[in-house]
């Protein structure tokens, strides 16, 4: 397994990402310099999970196989400027979400650095919510988790309920009774209740019906005007093309292409249809 990985890494290394071109006429807001992100995953065991094999492994001085280290981002560099709306595309597992989390400062870099003006925030409050509790309580919990004060929460509450557009009465039911679309709408509504310096959106638009998608697109547009820059991870290329002025194409944790939406999306579409 070790050898296979090494070979794979060598093949990775052969790929040369496009060099970073600095535009001195614009104000940078996010600078990512040769960023590497590794994280550990528990529970993916290749060997037989018996006590005997574990003992043998420990005696032989090998590290735990249950803990696989994933090198998710491998030397990414780019500069984002004020007013940019950057789409990040790539196949599943290409490191898009990891990159976003690193820009947000939520995953510590293994090497390299992320430099930002202001605090980038991920539009992802879902993790703070609890399925067994009512929508009502989750709105309050989510707002407090994002760092709003109780007063601000009270003030935003009606707006969130209205934007989520849940069917009557559902706000008093536990979130576990919601359909996936309803849940996603509520999460997006809560998350967008705050203003952000740099906004990172990860697949927020993937769920929800056409009507909600239109509404959330408007909301993103509005947030983009208030924020310094917006990053959008999405699999729907039409959404990226409509919302972004620049696109990063990521593959195996490295940048393949960085350019205008038309250019990059065309190349990407061609590559995945091959």
């Amino acid at each position: 397994m070790g050898r296979a990985l090494e070979v794979a890494e060598k093949e990775q290394a052969r790929h040369v990402p496009p060099p970073v071109v600095i535009d001195t006429t614009r104000q940078p807001i996010v600078v990512v310099d040769d960023l590497h992100i590794k994280y550990k995953v528990y529970g993916t065991v290749r060997e037989k999970g018996t006590g005997a094999s574990a003992l043998g492994r420990i005696l032989r001085g090998r590290s735990r196989p249950q803990m696989t280290e994933i090198h998710a981002v491998r030397g990414v560099s780019f500069v984002a400027y004020k007013g940019d709306a950057i789409g990040v595309i790539g196949t599943n597992g290409s490191g898009k979400s990891t990159l976003l989390k690193a820009v947000a400062g939520l995953l510590p870099p293994a090497a390299g650095g992320v430099y930002t003006d202001g605090q980038p925030s991920l539009l992802g409050v879902g993790a703070a919510l609890m399925r067994d509790l009512t929508g009502e309580r989750n709105i309050i919990l989510g707002c407090l988790a994002m760092g709003l004060t109780p007063e601000e929460t009270k003030e935003k509450y009606p707006e969130i309920v209205q934007f989520a557009g849940l069917r009557k009465g559902f706000i008093k039911y536990p979130m576990s009774t919601y359909s996936s679309g309803m849940g996603a709408r509520l999460r997006f509504a809560i998350a967008s209740a705050r203003t952000h310096d740099v906004l990172l959106i990860d697949e927020a638009l993937a769920t929800g019906d056409a009507k909600f998608r239109r509404r959330s697109k408007r909301k993103i547009e509005q947030m983009r005007k208030n924020a310094g820059a917006v990053f959008l991870v999405a699999h729907q290329l039409d959404v990226v093309a409509e919302t972004c002025n620049r696109v990063l194409w990521l593959d195996e944790g490295q940048i393949v292409m960085d350019g205008s939406p038309e250019e990059v999306i065309a190349a990407y579409t061609e590559a995945i249809n091959k």
Binding site: V30, V31, P109, T116
Partner: peptide, 29 residues
């Protein structure tokens, strides 16, 4: 280079880290 923003070259030899520092950007983690 596939990037084609109407860009002029950054100060040659300047690393991205130095570029970031010059604009007052701070490490987010």
């Amino acid at each position: 280079s596939l990037t084609a923003p109407p860009a002029s070259q950054g100060k040659s030899g300047e690393s991205l880290t130095a570029f970031a520092a010059r604009h007052g950007l701070t490490q987010s983690a």
